[in-house]
Design a binder for these strands. Structure first.
Lengths: 118, 118
DNA sequence: CTGGATCCCGTTGGATACTG
DNA sequence: CAGTATCCAACGGGATCCAG
């Protein structure tokens, strides 16, 4: 996966829409193309520590949005994948991304204007 | 406005989608039908204190999603209203509500099943 | 390699009291 | 009426170290 997929400096991070916790939406997007390993997910989500990523994955698993499959190998391998329910989230996420693409510049501009005259 | 509009016990509150801070999405929905006064907003958002509501309103104003108009009267009157930019949020919010209506029961069920076998 | 265990700190948001 | 001022508890999430 591309390492700059979720650049922390990307203005899309300013979007007021959040799915689950801080990383939930991005994790779901990462899994759109198929199952991914733990360390694969850490590539695009560069700023997340292993602990926090684990917590986010557990939360998504608890809500039935992803599955966790551990293979009894050495070295260990764990794969995460979207459930059918998780896939249904892709649609609203796409809509929210579309909104961000179309309107986020206005939010950023309003925020900058507000800085000048608070 | 109806006082039970955002019942804290309503399962829709479990939706993983959030707009801005905790109350942002609900405030925007409250303003859908036209301008509202500060104390009007406190009715459906029963659990929010004046301080927190003020903070949320300021954040939405800062991002250009709502306007704040203070009338120089006695007693004082302040009205909040959606900007055109703020109105563009109604669409993604409606989509997310639709998703919640269709799929939230599955999330709740998954969460309950997870409780049994963590 | 995939996390669990700790520790820690900034932010969020709630309670309460007060004010122009 | 529409806030502000304080205070504070809870939570999110990051750093670091450790383990199977």
């Amino acid at each position: 996966m591309r390492a700059d997929m979720f650049d922390p400096a990307c203005p899309s991070r300013l979007s007021p829409v959040r799915i689950g916790d801080k990383w939930g939406g991005m994790i779901i997007l990462c899994l759109e193309g198929g199952p991914r390993r733990f360390s694969e997910l850490r590539v695009p989500l560069r700023r997340v520590t292993a602990k926090v990523l684990t917590e986010s994955l557990r939360a998504l698993e608890r809500d039935g949005l992803i599955t966790r499959t551990a293979y009894d190998e050495n070295p260990p391998r764990v794969e995460y994948a979207l459930t059918p329910l998780g896939r249904t989230m892709l649609e609203p996420i796409a809509w929210c991304r579309e909104w961000a693409r179309d309107h986020l510049p206005q939010v950023v501009a309003a925020r900058e204007a507000y800085e000048v005259t608070p």
